Computed example of a mutant assay.
Amino acid sequence: MRKTDLTRRFLLLLLLPLAAVVPLYLDAFRVEQITQIVAIAIAVTGLNLLTGFTGQVSVGHSAFFGVGAYVTAVLMSQTNLTYPLAILAACLGGLIVGFMVGLPAVRIKGLHLAIVTVVLAAAFPGIVRMLEPWTGGSQGIRVDRLDYVAWLPLQSDQWRFYVTTTVLAAVVLAIAVLQRRPTGRALRSLGDNEVAAVAYGVRATRMRVGVFAASACVTALGGSLFVMSSGFIAPGTSYVTVLGSIQFLTAMVIGGRSLVFGPLIGAAVAELLPLQLGQESPELAHLLYGAILIVLLLVAPNGLTGTRLRSLLPQRLRRPSPARLPKGLSTASSLTKQGDLS
C-alpha cells in the first residue's frame, strides 16, 4: 500500500471521532454554522463530481442548489410531507433539472458551457419571483427546521449536524465506489481524451448527460439540507444566485481534488474567511479576500489538499523524490480491461 493511501486512511480515521464530538463541545451557533458548511460541502462535492470526472466547468450549480432548497421548502410549508420524503423529492427535482440542462449542453464544452450555465444561475432568482404563490417571491419561505428525535439524547442543532454529516459521508462513499468502477474510469477517460475514449467504446453523450444529472442531484441534496438547517430560503440568498455558483467554484479550487477533505476545507474557507475579513475591515474585505485567494492559488495551484509540503520548500531544500511510474500510462491503457462501458 502506498504511503499516500496510508496517510489518507489515517486522516479519515481521525476525522470520524472528531466529527462525532464536535457538536458536543461547541455552542449552538457554532454547531449550526458548521452544519451549513457541511451542507455547502455536499454541493461542492456535486460540482466536483462533474468537473473532477469529465473536466466540465459549470457556473450554474447555484440553480440546482436552489431547486433542492425550494422543492424542500415548498413541500414542507404547504404539505405534511416528512423530512426524508422532502429530501428525496429535492434530489429527484435536481436530477430532472440537471438532465434537462445536461441534454442540450452535451455538445457544449469549455467556456461555452460556463456561459450557458451562468445564464441559468442568473435566471433562477427571477424564476423564483415569478412563482410567488408557491415560492413566496422576494419574501422567501420559512420552514420548520429539522428537529431532534425524542429517543436520542441530542439537541436539535446536534441532530441536524449528525444528519448532514452522515449524508456527506454517504455521498463521498458512493463517489469513491464509482471511481473504482468501469463507469468511473470511463468518465475520467472522457475528461482526459474524449477521442480515445470514444474509440474504445465509451458512449460520450450518455456519460456526459448522466454525470451532469448526478452532479445536479447531489448539489440539490446540499440545498435541501441547507434549508432544513437554516429554516429559510429566498431568491436573495447568496447560494441561489450567481454569487453562489462562484462560491462553489472557489471552494472547489481552494479545497482541491481530495474527495473528502477538499470540499470540506474549501467550503469552510469560502464561507468563514469573507465573514472574518468583513468583521475586521469592512472597507477592504473584498480586496483582502481576493489577495488571499491569489496567494493560495500561487502557493497551492492544485488546492490545499493537492499540494504537498515538500513542494512549498525552496528548490535547494527539497529532497529528490524517487522515480515512479504514472498512475495511468494513457487513456487507452486505462480502458483496455474495462469491457463494455455503456
Rank of each mutant, 00 (worst) to 15 (best):
L298E: 03
G306Y: 02
L325F: 10
P282Y: 15
L313A: 08
L335H: 05
V299Q: 04
I294T: 11
E283M: 13
I294Y: 10
L325M: 06
R324S: 10
L277F: 08
T336Q: 12
P322I: 02
I294H: 02
L284T: 06
E283A: 15
P322R: 09
R324A: 11
E283F: 12
G290A: 01
T331G: 08
T336V: 14
T331M: 04
L329Q: 12
A291V: 10
I294W: 02
L293T: 03
L275N: 12
I292S: 03
S330M: 08
P320V: 06
E280R: 08
I292N: 03
S334M: 12
P314K: 01
S281C: 11
P282T: 13
T305N: 01
P282S: 10
L304W: 03
N302Y: 11
S281Y: 13
L325V: 08
R310D: 13
L287F: 15
N302F: 07
A332M: 12
P320Y: 00
L304Q: 02
R324E: 09
G339F: 05
A300R: 00
P322G: 05
L309V: 09
A285V: 02
L287Y: 10
L284D: 09
L329A: 11
L313I: 05
A332Y: 12
L329R: 13
Q315C: 00
L335K: 01
Q315V: 05
E280V: 10
R310A: 12
L296S: 01
R308E: 14
Y289E: 08
P301K: 03
P301C: 07
S330N: 13
G328I: 11
L304Y: 04
Q338E: 08
S333E: 15
L317A: 08
E283D: 14
A291L: 12
L335I: 02
L317T: 03
I292Y: 03
Q315G: 00
S321K: 15
L313Q: 08
G303L: 06
G290C: 06
Q338K: 04
L304P: 00
L298R: 12
P320K: 07
R324M: 07
Y289T: 04
T305K: 06
K327Y: 01
L304C: 05
S333C: 05
G328S: 14
K327C: 03
P322W: 00
Q279S: 10
E283T: 13
G328V: 08
T331V: 13
T331H: 06
L329M: 05
T305W: 01
S334P: 00
Q276P: 00
P322H: 03
A300I: 03
L275H: 15
L298G: 09
S334G: 13
